[in-house]
Amino acid sequence: MGNSISPEIEQSLLGKSTEYSDQYNAGLLYPISRQPKRDDIGINPPTKEAGLPFFGQDIWNAFELSWLNLKGKPQVAMAVFRIPVDSDNIIESKSFKLYLNSFNQTKIESQQQLQHILVRDLSATAGAPVDVTLQALGGVLDGAATMQITEPKGRCLDGLDIEVKHYHPEPALLKNQNDLIIKETLYSHLLRSNCPVTGQPDWATVEINYTGKRIDKAGLLAYIVSFRLHNDFHEQCVERMFLDISQRCQPEELTIIARYTRRGGLDINPWRSSHRPSFENRRFVRQ
């Protein structure tokens, strides 16, 4: 069951041999409209003011950011980019990596100037204000305190002895176990989806926090596994999960966070929620 490739993705750099530029080039950034995939799963508010069925962000952590100071000395930093869920576009990941690499031999006056450039370029590409935080690295990893490896919260589903028959998203697997109203957090390391162009696997840990009727755990795990051969970008997988669980299980509150493993110095961590939670940008062991 393959997914058709949109013309805008075919025109992107994804899956193509590309020369790396080490001189700043904002033109490398490539936007992909969110709306066509949202139309596919029924997220099509008539106007922007009508709103989305969730809050959220796409959080990108960058571990390979470097530039030159005015004396030509290399500088390095980690960066966190927060792209709002109501932006017009996602940013194609390979173009993002090429863009960040284009700073490698570019002289920049200060970290503050670099941050200004990043905010300007990424916001223009996403079609909404993008928040950028830079963490400079010195003799000691200054970001170590904020990027410590932690465990997912809640109960792991992966030990359940289930039979798996579906490897494409199957919402019918989702059901409530009973009418008891509870609040719990469940997680799984078994989420795998695939790049819609190259077919390369994307691995993630997904955390599901909900309040409502108790969700059947075996069915939830089988549903998570059912993404294994599904072709979609990270952000689109999380939105599909949010809608399917919302519609099938009807929780009073729902938050889904997927922490995908790193590629090319970038990891992508979309979260979607029925409310506005305080989101901790925690790093899991596979990241």
Rank of each mutant, 00 (worst) to 15 (best):
H230I: 02
S226L: 09
S6P: 01
I257A: 04
A258R: 00
V197E: 01
P270A: 09
T18P: 00
Q247H: 10
M1N: 07
R82A: 12
S17W: 12
S87V: 04
D161S: 13
K16P: 04
R120L: 12
E19C: 05
H230D: 09
V80M: 11
G264T: 07
I268M: 03
I83S: 00
Y223I: 02
N281L: 14
Q112P: 01
L173M: 04
K71D: 14
K94Q: 10
Q247K: 10
N269H: 02
P171R: 08
A26S: 12
G127C: 06
F81Q: 01
H234Y: 12
K213L: 03
P36E: 09
E92M: 01
V164D: 08
T150N: 10
E19Y: 04
A79D: 02
L160R: 09
K175Y: 12
I181Q: 12
P36W: 09
L191Y: 06
G51N: 11
I224F: 14
L141K: 05
G199C: 10
S102A: 11
G264K: 05
K97H: 02
T150F: 02
G138N: 05
V164H: 08
T106Q: 10
L254E: 06
D161R: 07
I208W: 08
R263V: 02
K213D: 07
S123L: 11
Q75R: 14
G265I: 07
R82S: 13
I256K: 01
D267N: 11
N178Y: 12
L173H: 04
P171V: 02
P7K: 11
L70P: 00
Q23I: 13
